[in-house]
Design a binder for these strands. Structure first.
Length: 246
DNA sequence: CGGCGACCAGAAAG
DNA sequence: GCTTTCTGGTCGCC
C-alpha cells in the first residue's frame, strides 16, 4: 500500500506562495504528523540562494528534518558522477561465529586517518573525491554542521539494511547525522526501541517515510538513541540507490 | 486459488 | 539483554 505521503516537489524553488491548505501532512498513524516549517532565519544560511522547504518529522523522542537538497537535474548528475568515482566493496559482518556478506555494497570516505568499525570489521576512509566534497559542502551549507566522514551504502531493490541504530563508538550521539539519498526512492522506517519485538513494553507506531532522489534527512539527537531505523527490501524496485551518511 | 511480496518471529554464539 | 542477518511462517493482495 503506497501511502507514504512525505513527498513534496520543489518546483522551481518558488515556495512562499501557494502553501498547501493543510499545514500538517498525515502519516500512516494518526499521531505522527509532519509539520511544514517556514524556512526563514536559522535553518537556512543566507548564502543558500534557493531556500529549502524543510519538513519536520517528530514523534516521541524523534526529531528529524527532511528536505530536497538537490534538484532532479543536479541529483541526476551527482548520481552519475558517483557511479564513476566511488569504489564499493561488499563487506562481511561477523555475528555468532558466522560470517555473512552484508546485503549492500559500501564505501567509506573521509578525512585522512579516520577509520570506521562495523561489527568487528574495520575500514579506513578513502580521501574525499570532488563530488563527495561538493555534496558534503552542500550539506554543511544548509545545516551549519561540518562532517569529517561519510559512509556510502549502495543498494539495489533487493539490497536492504536491517533495523539498527547508528551507534558506532566513533560517533558522538549528540551530533546530528545527515543522510543524502540519490537514485531510486526507498521506504525508510523508524521504530522506537521500546516498541520492538513481540512482547514490547510499549505500543508506539513506527514512523515511515520515503527518501526521495536528492533528498537530505537530518537525524537530530536523541533520535538515534531512542529509535531504530531500517531500509526494508522492495523487490519491485530494480533501480539502485546511493545513500551517503555523514 | 496460486504465487509473490511484505512483514514478523525465531535462530544463530558469546 | 544485546548484537545482525537470514530463514521460515503467515497474511493479504493481485
Amino acid at each position: 500500500m503506497e501511502k507514504f505521503v512525505v513527498r513534496r516537489q520543489r518546483k522551481g524553488s518558488c515556495d512562499n506562495d501557494a502553501r498547501s491548505p493543510q499545514k500538517k501532512v498525515k502519516l500512516e498513524s494518526d499521531e505522527r504528523v509532519m509539520e511544514e516549517v517556514e524556512e526563514d532565519d536559522h535553518t537556512t544560511p543566507a548564502e543558500f540562494s534557493h531556500p529549502i522547504p524543510w519538513q519536520k518529522i517528530e514523534a516521541e523522542g524523534l526529531d528529524c528534518d527532511y528536505a530536497l537538497l538537490f534538484s532532479k537535474e543536479e541529483a541526476d548528475q551527482l548520481f552519475r558522477k558517483l557511479e564513476q568515482e566511488v569504489v564499493y566493496t561488499t563487506s562481511k559482518v561477523q555475528l555468532f561465529g558466522k560470517v555473512y556478506n552484508i546485503p549492500r555494497k559500501q564505501a567509506t570516505y573521509g578525512d585522512a586517518g579516520l577509520t570506521y568499525t562495523y561489527s568487528g570489521f574495520k575500514r579506513s576512509a578513502c580521501p574525499w573525491t570532488p563530488t563527495l566534497e561538493y555534496i558534503r559542502d552542500a550539506v554543511t551549507k544548509t545545516t551549519g554542521q561540518t562532517f569529517n566522514f561519510v559512509l556510502i551504502n549502495y543498494k539495489d531493490g533487493q539490497d536492504h539494511m536491517g533495523e539498527h541504530r547508528d551507534d558506532e563508538k566513533e560517533l558522538d550521539p549528540l551530533c546530528p547525522i545527515a543522510s543524502v539519498s540519490l537514485g531510486a526512492a526507498r521506504d525508510f522506517i523508524f521504530r522506537h526501541r521500546d516498541a520492538r519485538g513481540k512482547e514490547s513494553r510499549r505500543q508506539i507506531e513506527p514512523v515511515k517515510l520515503e527518501l526521495a532522489h536528492g533528498s537530505l534527512l537530518l537525524m537530530n539527537s536523541p533520535t538515534n538513541t531512542l529509535w531504530y531505523h531500517s531500509l526494508p527490501v522492495r523487490k519491485k524496485i530494480s533501480q539502485p540507490r546511493i545513500n551517503l551518511t555523514f
